[in-house]
Design a protein around this nucleic acid. Structure first.
Length: 884
RNA sequence: GCAGGAUUAGCUCAGUGGUAGAGCGGCAGAUUUACAUUCUGUUGGUCGGGGGUUCAAAUCCCUCAUCCUGCACCA
């Protein structure tokens, strides 16, 4: 046993233990074990990702669950891995290429993909190293990647299976198009944000009634060349008569008049009140307009290229311009034509691409869609609690989404991803395509679909396709899933459906949704705001354990978390405190390797702390049941710091420093017992420091089978202490001593007596056992001498305080301000009188006495008695002062 | 527009029917040998407003206000 240093230095300790755990294979479970299984699959971070505080929160919770399950004797699998993250990863490599003035098209598909794999090998998975630094107990031997050969095959097979079931189809539809990434997006990948825009009012002439014009309001004048109709509500008296006539579309201006005529149609979709009640219909560039167009058989005129640059159909004024430049150009042209009537400020919602953060463009294109499988079964599973959501309110959000579920656009016009396993015949283009896991045998006659699948189409298989047969037999369905509510639709809902569809079982029993971490001003953490601290910096400053513990204490169940570095500092301080508590114990000689309370003569303080330890264990157990990690953290913090360090250790010093070997041994054994228990309770939260202290305090080693705490399958259970009345009496006594200590310290502070200065105290006791506890009381109040004097006359000049043990006096040399002393006591009397009045008022209320439970009434009576007694004593003390 | 969440001490937040709490901050003090990443004492709240249910409400119900988050959207 080496000496413990004064301050805890986490870096070396944490790295040492993590390496050790890996070496010992502590995180690799045995599927053949007959221990009950516990499993979690990690939400696979993007392979391009770096650790954020969100990951820290998420993975710390998973680690806590996994480590506790191990200590409860389960066979634990925490399966890690990364996601290939289609757009994000392709972006990273394309950005690199752009620096060399190249695009992926210069390289070609094959060369480009080679480059992405190279990038992945070199830079990918940084986040895995960071998770290790955090202390995550994942089974790295089972680490998976969503584009591993086997996994890819499973993704392809899933596609083929759903295709054969008729659930996957190809369609020419309006989709969300990302003009930067040049791909379609699913509805979930579009983020609606309010944007300050302008509503432009412009006129169109009625062809059949020259001189008559209609005014139209639009936010997108640049799409006028794509307008193929003007719509009004058929019930709108202002405009109904124009239905069937034609309007002259102002753009492109250069076209001959007959090519600019577009029909005026009637459609219920048009609102009377909005704008002017006249709507321009652009079927190629607006989802709602597309539907109107479909209803009326309107032509679809696409005026943009895939990159949202206007094409020649937009006319000479706009062609070649980006859509936003084109808007300005269109405005200028309309003004020039005296068609522009007015412009007004207007705020409306615009959809942005989740990945590239630019406005999506509704675009008609050929895409693959999935009609979701197992929808009803999946909705029901959450409804019945077969899959339990925590907090439960997310179930309603899920239910709503499931009830309004829309087909999923699963194709992406990217290169990085799982290529769609569909081949088209070169020989007979009208033949049905070949769809299969294996390419067609006569490959040269076929051409594979160029699209890849949405990343989430692979992620939704994660809980089972990451496992081989033996692993799956033991660990699937998984136990807990821990994730953020932001991917409820993207991932959680889809996994449930995939689970039921492909394995006929739920993928997990519980889903715990964490909160979102926000900055001090309540804003989301984001790269662009630069308000997201680097967790690795925090680990360097405060240690991984400090970060974990600090974060867990401020992470209430399912509520957003306002991040404050101070909290992490507290986590570090807590680790340091733990370190020093161990250090203190070690300074008093070697401890027991297996602490036992058998045959121990316990002081009342020892009995008290053990009873509190028992309630702590019970409380922690309950909190785990409800996934209330902040509550567990708070309980552990409070017990260890306030109850154990501040009170028990200080009180026990009486025994430790006294010359009574038996009492000393008893106190030290109780410390051993508490630390032995506490290290285990804390281990899931702070794995490194607890492991280190476990060894330093001599708890590790041959006595415990596997020597490491991480494999110590014995999560604490309550002691065999005598329960009930005996311990309650002892605890009441200890509480009285501690309250008396506080009262005495208060007196010292009032009279500016430095806590280091020894002074005399006199106790006029009201309890029979006062004398027994004088040594400890005396020590804790730093008394020169503490005497019990039942008949102390209490001269007027002596400061006094009422304590649960009796009246306490602090005779001081020199004059004491009696008036001030009297004032102080009077203030206390006023407080007690108010309390007494409150409780008496309640007891005088007949309906309270009649209706409240007997125990509550009894408790109020007791309260009344206690306050009355206290008031009597305070009054006597005030009278003894002789002040009016 | 619909749904959900939040509103408690200066700050960040616990507290879901029975005596309003913690940490930080502030103030006053302490180097008492585990720890200044410490210790002691103290200050500070009509629990967002209003109404209701109840013997009893921060807690349950209604309503209003403000903020946040989803979802749906009218160009």
């Amino acid at each position: 046993m080496t000496e413990i240093s004064k301050a805890y230095e986490p870096q070396a300790v944490e790295e040492k233990w993590y390496a050790h755990w890996l070496e010992e294979g502590c995180f690799t479970p045995d599927p053949a074990s007959d221990k009950p299984a516990y499993s979690i699959v990690i939400p696979p971070p993007n392979v391009t990702g770096v650790l954020t505080l969100g990951h820290v929160l998420n993975n710390t919770i998973q680690d806590i669950l996994a480590r506790r399950a191990r200590m409860l004797g389960r066979e634990v699998l925490w399966l890690p891995g990364t996601d290939h993250a289609g757009i994000a990863t392709q972006n990273v490599v394309e950005r690199q290429l752009r620096k060399e003035k190249k695009t992926r098209h210069d390289l070609g598909r094959e060369e480009f993909l080679k480059l992405v794999w190279e990038w992945k090998a070199k830079h990918g998975g940084i986040i895995i190293q960071q998770l290790k630094r955090l202390g995550c107990s994942c089974d790295w031997s089972r680490e998976r990647f969503t584009m591993d050969a086997g996994y890819s095959r499973a993704v392809t097979a899933a596609f083929v299976d759903l295709y054969k079931k008729g659930l996957i189809y190809r369609g020419n539809r309006m989709v969300n198009w990302d003009p930067l990434a040049l791909t379609a997006l699913s509805d979930e990948e579009v983020i609606m944000r309010p944007e300050k825009g302008v509503l432009y009012y412009f006129t169109v002439e009625i062809a059949e009634e020259p001189g008559t014009a209609l005014t139209i309001a639009t936010t997108r004048p640049e799409t006028i060349p794509g307008d193929t109709a003007i719509a009004v509500n058929p019930n709108d008296g202002r405009y109904a008569r124009f239905i069937g006539m034609h309007a002259v579309r102002p753009l492109p201006h250069e076209l001959p008049r007959e090519q600019k005529l577009i029909p005026i149609i009637g459609d219920d979709h048009v609102e009377f009140e909005f704008g002017t009640g006249v709507l321009k219909v652009t079927p190629a560039h607006d989802k709602a307009d597309f539907e109107i167009g479909a209803r009326h058989g309107l032509p679809v005129v696409d005026i943009m290229n895939p990159d949202a640059v206007m094409n020649e159909r937009a006319g000479q004024d706009l062609a070649g311009l980006d859509r936003f430049e084109a808007r300005e150009a269109a405005i200028r042209k309309l003004e020039e034509l005296r068609s522009m009537v007015k412009q007004e400020a207007y705020e409306h919602n615009v959809g942005f691409s989740e990945r590239t953060n630019i406005p999506v463009e509704p675009r008609l294109s050929d895409q693959w869609f999935l009609k979701y499988p197992a929808v009803e079964k999946s909705a029901e599973a959450v409804r019945t609690g077969e899959v339990a959501f925590r907090p439960a309110r997310w179930a309603a959000v899920y239910e709503h989404w499931m009830a309004n579920i829309q087909d999923w656009c699963i194709s992406r016009q990217l290169w990085w991803g799982h290529r769609i396993p569909v081949w088209y015949s070169k020989l007979e283009p009208n033949d049905p395509p070949y769809v299969g896991v294996e390419p067609p045998p006569d490959m040269e006659n076929w051409e594979q679909d160029t699209d890849v699948l949405d990343t989430w189409f692979s992620s939704w298989l994660w809980p089972f396709e990451t496992m081989d047969d033996a692993t799956r037999a033991k660990f699937y369905p998984t136990t807990d899933l821990v994730t953020g509510p932001d991917i409820l639709f993207f991932w959680v809902a889809r996994m449930i459906m995939a689970g039921f569809e492909f394995t006929a079982r739920k993928p997990f029993a519980n889903v715990f949704f964490t909160g979102l971490i926000r900055d001090g001003q309540g804003r989301k953490m984001s790269k662009s705001l630069g308000n997201s601290p680097d967790p690795l910096d925090l680990i360097a400053k405060y240690g991984a354990d400090g970060l974990r513990f600090g974060l867990m204490r401020i992470a209430p169940q399912g509520q957003d978390i306002r991040f404050d570095e101070k909290q992490i500092e507290e986590g570090r301080n807590f680790a340091n405190k733990l370190w020093n508590a161990a250090r203190f114990r070690q300074m008093h000689g070697p401890g027991a390797s297996v602490p036992s309370l058998d045959g121990l003569k316990l002081s009342c303080y020892s009995a008290d702390i053990l009873a509190r330890l028992d309630s702590l264990i019970e409380q922690v157990g309950k909190s785990y049941e409800e996934y209330r990690f902040n509550e567990i953290g708070a309980s552990l913090y409070e017990f260890f710091w306030s109850q154990y360090c501040d009170w028990y250790v200080e009180a026990a010093k009486t025994e430790i420093f006294a010359d009574q070997p038996e009492a000393k041994a008893s106190a030290l054994m109780v410390m051993d017992y508490v630390l032995w228990t506490l290290l285990r309770l804390l281990h899931p939260f702070m794995p490194h420091i607890t492991e280190e202290l476990w060894e330093r305090l001599g708890f590790a080693g041959p006595n415990h089978g596997a020597g490491n705490l991480v494999m110590f399958a014995d999560f604490p259970v309550k002691t065999a202490l005598p329960a009930g009345g005996v311990i309650a009496t002892v605890q009441a006594q200890v509480a009285a001593v501690y309250a008396s200590v506080t009262a005495a310290r208060n007196l010292r502070a009032e009279y500016r007596v430095a806590s280091s200065k020894k002074v005399n105290f006199i106790l006029k006791p009201t309890v029979t056992w006062a004398a027994d506890e004088l040594p400890t009381l005396s020590r804790l109040v730093n008394a020169e001498e503490l005497t019990v004097e039942p008949n102390y006359p209490a001269p007027a000049g002596v400061p006094r305080a009422l304590t649960p043990m009796g009246e306490l006096y602090m005779p001081l040399e020199g004059a004491v301000d009696t008036a001030a002393e009297s004032e102080r006591i009077k203030k206390e009397i006023a407080k007690v009188e108010a309390e007494l009045a409150t409780v008496r008022k309640k007891l005088e209320n007949q309906s309270f006495v009649a209706n409240a439970p007997a125990a509550v009434v009894q408790e109020h009576r007791q309260r009344e008695t206690d306050w009355a007694a206290k008031l009597g004593q305070l009054t006597r003390m005030r009278d003894a002062l002789g002040e009016p």
